[in-house]
Design a protein around this nucleic acid. Structure first.
Lengths: 340, 340
DNA sequence: CATTGGCACTCGCGCCCAGGGAGTGCCAGT
DNA sequence: ACTGGCACTCCCTGGGCGCGAGTGCCAATG
């Protein structure tokens, strides 16, 4: 492929910019009139080149051009100067974030809502994989005759808790003792290690002859052992209904289905967790079928002592990258800096 | 309006039955062939009557007939023999319900999912209004330097808990003392009364000179004082995409919007909380604009010492009432009988 | 030689129109 | 009281047509 001249770049940029707001194929006349100081004929020649390079696509002979996924990719990588969020916007977003937290919302969910509200797209938040989360402490609280709450305090902002049925009516003192046992074996290790440690302990002599101790360990396993996949929050999926590209009901169904099923999106987010900065995954690049015509923008964040998660948005390929990219970055930042 | 003859009833019933499965207007020929031992001509006459009575509607001259909301109403009230769920179905549903609970799911959410899964419609669960919930006990757990979890144990299956920031670094003993204070004033009363009791206590001498006591009360207020509206769970709204009536994108949007906004649906559910048995609210009867063409089927359930909530489904008016009505009733039953 | 205006061409879209089909209402016959 | 027959109405579909948008190419131009 030949290199792009300055002019090619100008035209491609203009096509994307216009298409992002109009959601329609753009013609040479529009470009000439609104974006470029060139005659329509010249623009047509350039557009012809771009099409041959696979960066633009013509839905049919007498239509304007639409950027291809590769076109968007080039635009995002080379042509786009992301403007930073203005201080005002940042303040507004941050205020929104914190006010929600004070009201007692879950941090993850809050971040998802925020992304969604500001971008008008679907907000995504992937919690750090639980395996890597550092266990600080476990508490057991008696709720009733055979019910207790087990609380897992980690180095993350979220506190996990779960109501469990107990095998007997333990007193408050019993539960405290059990919690102490659990903490002895478990505190300071990651959740991933916890399983192994508990298993090892279970075999030791001390446990064999101490029913309470054994029961405590079992409880810990049952409550948090099987929490395999990091939780994925999908917020405000119905916003997609607003986007004109989803007037096509088939596409919408497909996307909803993949969003609901979660596992595929989860894999995509997890894959981006390692890389720095903001990631952009355009349409077909993801090889997920529900994602045709959609772009996923993500950014990693860190929480606690090194565990990392990912936030992002999903929306039509035709989205305002200039705004959304810094937005996702900023929210990831908020989340990373967030101290509880 | 003249009374309906036996024949009128037969025809109306047949129209509804066919329309429920076909989702299309029903013609006289179909009815004569598949449901009735009458010639098409006779059927036409009867259908004409029914139309004049406002029970059927003809979308246009050369189309078949569709039941009106009033037609459905009459069908549901007088013509429908709800068959009970078979023992097998009941067992299956119950097993599904309980297996989910063992896995630690929220009871409310679980019930919603269940309704949705079995009916292929949108599941709704309204928790009992918190005001009427009996407070059994409050626990405070130290999570970190300035963080604590406040746990509200009621006579309901769900346990409410919330992470709060504290104004100082309270020790475990402090928090236990505070919890004791709170329980002294609060336990045994409903959440509705709690507010007043705390306010009263705050003015008493004992509190004026005891900072910890004051702080405890304040905490209780902040955490659970403002939980106004009972929580409404809307599960699996995207199932609506499957229904052929929602190929019309405008209607779908409207319904999604009201589902998302919740307050209107919430009001409808709350209204049915008082009445026994299964309630059916058909289309325009609700006066909620997003509800045209939709039916809401609900049933009340009770939990704890007398507080009542509501479960239900929402779907197109054209739904299989024969199956759905007993289903909603049964799930309400499950929830009422559920003991934790 | 890059740029431009001109021009013929293509193709989707909206419109009209006719034909077929589904379903009805009415009427006369049993 | 039913029913068969019949004329009628109206939607739906498909084909034909004109319009407009947009293109590609070419010859002219600075």
């Amino acid at each position: 492929m030949t290199a792009l001249t300055e002019r090619h770049q100008q035209v491609l940029r203009a096509v994307v910019d216009d298409h992002v707001v109009s959601s329609q194929p753009v013609g040479s006349a529009t470009l000439s009139r609104r974006y470029l100081d060139l005659s329509p004929a010249t623009v047509r020649n350039v557009m012809g080149d771009l099409e041959r390079m696979g960066l633009l696509h013509q839905p049919h002979t007498s239509a304007g051009r639409v950027p291809t996924d590769r076109g968007f990719r080039l635009y995002v990588d080379d042509l786009l100067k992301v403007r930073n969020l203005s201080q005002r916007e940042r303040d507004r977003i941050r205020a929104e974030f914190e006010s929600g937290l004070d009201a007692g919302d879950d941090v993850m969910r809050r971040a998802g809502h925020l992304l969604s509200a500001v971008s008008n797209l679907v907000g995504l938040v992937l919690a750090p994989p639980l395996d890597e989360v550092l266990v600080k402490r476990i508490e057991l609280v008696r709720l009733g005759r055979r019910r207790a709450m087990i609380i897992l305090i980690t180095d993350q902002p979220v506190v996990h808790n779960r109501v469990v049925r107990t095998d007997a009516d333990y007193t408050k003192a019993d539960l405290e003792k059990m919690a102490r046992y659990l903490n002895e074996t478990v505190s300071g290790c990651t959740l991933g290690e916890m399983y192994a440690r508990i298993e090892a302990q279970m075999k030791s002599d001390r446990v064999q002859y101490d029913r309470l101790r054994a029961r405590a360990l079992r409880l810990g396993l049952e409550a948090f052992g099987a929490r395999d996949e990091g939780a994925l929050y999908v917020e405000e999926a119905t916003r997609l209904l607003e986007q004109p590209e989803f007037l096509d009901i088939g596409r919408m169904k497909a996307l909803f289905r993949t969003l609901e099923e979660k596992s595929q999106i989860l894999a995509l987010l997890r894959a981006t967790i390692e890389s720095e900065g903001v990631n952009v995954l355009i349409g077909s690049e993801s090889e997920v079928d529900g994602m045709q015509g959609c772009t996923l923008i993500t950014s990693r964040y860190t929480a606690g002592r090194g565990a990392a998660g990912s936030v992002g948005v999903i929306g039509p390929t035709r989205m305002d990258y200039r705004r959304i990219i810094p937005l996702v970055g900023y929210v990831a930042n908020l989340l990373s800096r967030h101290r509880y």
